[in-house]
């Protein structure tokens, strides 16, 4: 990942609405956040600083979106922030109780070859609902750091901050091969012909 001359690395937080992006953002940045209006829109986004070791990160909390084909103005701003490479690193935030839905966006971002890390948030809710999430398995499969967090208690946030510098560009071919190897991506009942490591053929 490239560092700007002043040693600041920008981190763009992306995720579906309501996954806890802003709660995580607040935990990461504390009380120094600045709200900006995206030019030409009525959409605001928030940026703040995180100092971790000797590195200063500028963290940007993008509006929530379900995909990179925007449906409304807020989603469009999220996609523009990504397109403009406002993040040296993209932090993909997933709701641990709704992983499959969030992975759609995650794969779209990974395909664009940004250095990424994943925050698997809402682990407390997943635990309460007895949803077991194999974070280590997802990390192995995707080849990018995956950190479990609970934004409201702050659990995992320090680890997440430390993992930013380990961000990786996902190797989509390698992911596809690992999926084909394990066959774990298949739904039990309906095979998915013709696409290889599929992320959801209609």
């Amino acid at each position: 990942m490239k560092e700007q001359p002043d040693n600041t690395i920008t981190v763009l937080m992306m995720g579906n609405p309501n996954v806890g992006k802003s709660a995580l953002f607040n935990r990461l940045t504390g009380a120094n956040a600045v709200v900006s209006n995206y030019p030409g829109t009525t959409v605001d986004y928030t940026a703040g600083k995180l100092i971790e070791g000797h590195t200063t990160y500028e963290i940007i909390d993008a509006p929530g979106t379900y995909s990179l084909e925007p449906h409304d103005a807020a989603e469009k701003v999220a996609v523009l922030l990504l397109d403009e490479r406002r993040g040296d690193v993209v932090m993909i935030v997933l709701d641990a109780t709704k992983i499959e839905r969030g992975l759609y966006l995650a794969f779209e971002i990974m395909e664009r070859e940004y250095p990424c890390i994943i925050a698997l948030n809402m682990t407390d809710v997943a635990h309460d609902k007895q949803i077991k999430v194999n974070a280590a398995g997802i990390q192995r499969l995707l080849g990018i750091p995956v950190v479990e967090t609970t934004a409201i208690s702050g659990e995992g946030v320090k680890k997440l901050a430390g993992a930013i510098r380990k961000a990786q560009v996902a190797d989509m071919d390698a992911i596809r091969k690992r999926l084909e190897g394990s066959g774990e991506d298949r739904d039990e009942t309906v095979p998915c012909p013709g696409c290889g490591g599929c992320r959801g053929c209609g």
């Binding site: 379900y66 995909s67 084909e69 709704k98 499959e100 839905r101 739904d187 998915c192 959801g200 209609g202």
Partner: peptide, 11 residues
């Protein structure tokens, strides 16, 4: 795309 990104897909 429209439905897949919301988690609705074949199967």
């Amino acid at each position: 795309h429209e439905l897949n990104c919301m988690g609705l897909r074949t199967g």
